[in-house]
Nucleic acid binder design. Structure first.
Lengths: 329, 329
DNA sequence: GATGAAAATGTAATCGATTTCATTTTATAG
DNA sequence: CTATAAAATGAAATCGATTACATTTTCATC
């Protein structure tokens, strides 16, 4: 496979001139340009990014950190990131951490070893201390999930308000016994969503029942089933469930069905995220739609600006409550 | 950020010695080794992969080509590939082609420009001619979907047999009017699955009804709904549907429910792939389980061997019919 | 202590591009 | 036609590692 030397030789010019033709930024005579392009064609030459990247001290690769690839919540975000990144000639490397520090380290190392130019972290479980430390020397953006007050720019939605609106919807259609299926409150968004839940209840003078608040380790289908099993065993059974992820809600749905109960007549269900599957279930799921694609493009743009050394500010995007069959029948 | 020169200087040795300590393959005195390690520690040095990769003429990155990230079918395969790759110090770059040649080209270029060492293609829509051409100079493996007879090693299952077994199951539980929801027969696997379907029918003297065979453009939920709508309009309505992907089957499920019919009492449904969601629906889906994780690890191993210049042979893995509520109630 | 082989280390080339600075060529004006 | 500025091109340094080859050090042996 040809290199730039051979192209230069074949075209009868110096490597500098070939490089000028390649990058297109410098002035080259039309005639020389043609000679060079012919040589490139003839030799089937493709410039090596290995050489270019070393010289430019960049890899043009950005890392996306997600806890698991199995949660469809990330799809649209990833698409947004990818499209923005590709348009700026960056490639994305998808990094599944399984929320394990040792896998995280593998990808952090890629950054330290210059194999990546920056990170978009969507992993709430990520080691915040390490992230903060890395952020001093490398470009890092938090997307969707974020640790507040650690000085790393983020893009997200107002979780408290979204949660408030979801619960308010349930109250407005007549529910007063509403369960909250939340994730571990070590995550900021979990605390915010509980606060929104409480605010909606308080506003309508509904007393808080601690039995109605459940915590799950992860946001998956099985955890939703498990939590729903517990809810169904409560003496004073709730008439509605607000789950902080669609997968949890879908698990709940399945469990309610298995118990021979009807959604939404016996128990109404609200999810969070508006993943594709939320529309495929029976009944279709009422859910909070995050602007995922937008989130992705914004995060990518922020990261690229950060890589270029520009200052970037955090962004809070809007959301939308999508009302479907699981609350209105 | 420090480079190898500075480490060498600080440790009072040559860069060669530092490199020897880094790679660990050459003999270095315990004393010098310690000096170097202290310098590395002191300077917070991380070797740059840009330099190393240029010198070694490798990127240690492999590409995974998938049509869309939204189909959960790819999850487990990707996990398999990733784990095997990581264990061999490769990183994976997930490439969504949207089945568009122009996006494909972006990723092929990464290979040509030495930014990637090889490709695992799972995209049946991939331009076979280009792929074949690339395979002459680069390491390429086909996974799950493959073009036969083009000399590129693949790992897959026996689609014809799997399809045969799925349809046979439907026949054994009493069905004779069985629809096939297939994808475009430009894909080899689609042709193979139709053949399996026909073989099962023939074996039980069930005449082929062309109205019972439907073709969809893609393998998603909406296409399943659409196809099911058509099936429900048939005068002589089938009592069972075999869909060549779980997403199609889930779309069918939803549509059957919407029509007020019951699965499996009115219509039984069988899917293909055993994606996570096939278990989350109501009722849970009978489906053909592909050994996806295994497929991923095998494909990754094959690719790495190919990169190392070793000869590799294609592999056909087993499958399993998972019988659940959508056929047996 | 001298000898020679083996072990440890150093020097310098190399991977393949980009870019600074120097040099040559071209164009413009007088 | 010459002087001069501007444009085009080339030579060589550079990015940061690895490694072939050369050189020095170590150490066992006599």
């Amino acid at each position: 496979m040809a290199n730039i030397q051979q192209v230069a030789k074949h075209a009868g010019v110096s490597v500098a001139t070939v490089s000028r033709v390649l990058t297109g930024k410098n002035i080259v005579t039309a005639k020389t340009k043609q000679k060079v392009e012919e040589a490139i064609q003839y030799l089937n030459y493709e410039p090596s990014m290995l050489g270019r990247n070393l010289r430019n001290s960049e890899s043009r690769i950005v890392l996306i950190l997600i806890p698991t690839i199995s949660n469809p919540f990330y799809f649209e975000i990833i698409k947004g990131i990818e499209n923005m990144a590709l348009s700026q000639n960056y490639s994305i490397l998808l990094c599944e951490t399984d929320s394990k520090p040792e896998k995280e380290e593998i990808y952090f190392d890629l950054l330290r070893k210059k194999m990546a130019d920056g990170i978009i972290s969507m992993d709430p479980a990520v080691n915040v201390e390490t992230l903060k430390e890395l952020a001093e020397n490398y470009a890092i953006i938090q997307c969707s999930e974020y640790g507040g007050g650690i000085g790393i720019p983020y893009v997200t939605i107002d979780s408290e308000e979204a949660s408030y609106r979801a619960v308010k919807h349930l109250i407005q259609i007549g529910h007063r016994k509403i369960a909250l299926m939340n994730s571990d409150e070590k995550f900021l968004y979990a605390r915010e969503r509980r606060m929104g839940y409480e605010r909606a209840l308080q506003e309508h003078d509904i007393p808080l029942d601690p039995d109605y608040i459940l915590y799950t380790q992860e946001l998956g289908f099985e955890e939703g089933q498990l939590a729903m099993k517990k809810i169904l065993k409560l003496e004073d059974r709730p008439t509605a469930v607000f789950a902080v992820s669609d997968l949890l809600a879908i698990g709940a749905l399945k469990e309610i069905n298995a118990a021979g109960l009807h959604v939404p007549n016996d128990i109404a269900v609200v999810g969070f995220d508006k993943i594709d599957f939320s529309n495929m279930t029976n009944p279709a799921l009422t859910t909070v739609a995050q602007p995922m694609y937008k989130m992705g493009t914004v995060a990518a743009r922020m990261l690229i600006e950060k890589i270029q050394g520009k200052p970037v500010d955090s962004v809070v995007l809007g959301f939308e409550l999508v009302i479907r069959e699981s609350t209105t029948g």
